[in-house]
């Protein structure tokens, strides 16, 4: 073996070892556990093989169904709002000359703060009795709203928190993208007398498309993982109004101690998302190749 080959192997080895021991092995363990009913007797696991029956249960589980539906709704709603707002903010920022860095500093703040802290902040702001939102409603003589305790507003309230949390991230990526666009095409568009909307539609958006797609995929990946805010704000309620799959897994596996069943649910979510990601990647790659 040539010496470089030996070197490049051992240099890759630590990463492969970590992935094997802390990612692949646990996934294999999950699959094994998903085929069994596991009871904990004095800290010892007692396995009873049940085949694929727990998978059938996952798809019929009303909590899981509500969770899957809400997760999709949450991800679609939050990410769409973040993309539009973040893009608009970035576009505005590129049109000012002074103070760009200051605005960027302020907008960076929510990205860096723990999700649980964001949850804590909004839990106080949404509070029925003394939250700032209801105080503002009171100023206008309006009745207070139970934002998180009402099935009609709870999911929307959680989406608002996520939009507040992550629009700055979209803003940052869009700003970086806009700042790196060539200036000559804009001059050409000006010379041709293009209006703002024409310029946006025919110059900016097409040029920004790759950055937009990457940001969109980034955001979708993170938003389907949502857990912290739900844990702190609503615990999935009221009823199943804000139940998301991460929370359902947590509930079944940890709160209720259904090790085997929780594993089956984890396996379903894990492979569904991995597959969705690979498909999304294939589609965006193909588009890149054809254009």
């Amino acid at each position: 073996m040539r010496p470089e080959v030996a070197t490049r192997r051992w240099m890759l080895a630590p990463a492969l070892l970590l992935f094997a021991a802390v990612a692949v092995l646990p996934i294999a363990e999950l699959v094994a556990m998903s085929l069994a009913r596991i009871d904990w007797i004095q800290g010892k696991a007692n396995w009873q093989y049940v085949g694929l029956s727990q998978y059938a249960r996952v798809f019929g589980d009303p909590l899981f169904r509500a969770g899957a539906f809400n997760t999709l709704l949450f991800a679609a709603g939050a990410v769409l709002a973040q993309m539009v707002l973040g893009f608009a903010l970035a576009l505005m920022t590129t049109r000012i000359t002074r103070g760009r860095v200051l605005y960027r500093t302020v907008f960076l703040l929510p990205i860096l703060v723990p999700g649980i802290v964001i949850g804590a902040i909004w839990k106080l702001m949404y509070n029925f009795d003394f939250g700032v939102l209801n105080q503002m409603l009171g100023v206008f003589g309006l009745a207070p709203v139970d934002w998180l305790g009402n099935g009609a507003t709870a999911l929307l309230a959680v989406i608002v928190v996520d939009v507040w949390h992550w629009t700055p991230f979209v803003f940052l990526l869009m700003l970086a993208g806009l700042e790196s666009l060539p200036t000559d095409v804009y001059e050409a568009a000006r010379v041709d007398g293009a209006t703002f909307w024409q310029e946006l539609r025919h110059v900016t958006l097409p040029l920004m498309l790759p950055a937009i797609v990457v940001t969109l995929v980034f955001r979708l990946i993170v938003s389907v993982k949502v857990f912290d805010e739900i844990y702190l704000l609503t615990g999935g309620g009221p009823g199943t109004a804000t139940e998301v799959v991460s929370y359902t897994i947590f509930r079944r596996f940890f709160t209720e101690g259904q090790t085997g069943y929780g594993s089956a649910m984890s396996v379903v979510v894990l492979f569904a998302l991995a597959l969705a990601f690979i498909l999304a990647r294939a589609v965006t790659r193909r588009r890149e190749a054809t254009t």
Binding site: P26, I27, L30, F253
Partner: peptide
């Protein structure tokens, strides 16, 4: 792309 919660149990 995999949520951490799916691995936490394992």
């Amino acid at each position: 792309a995999i949520p951490a919660i799916t691995l936490v149990g394992a």
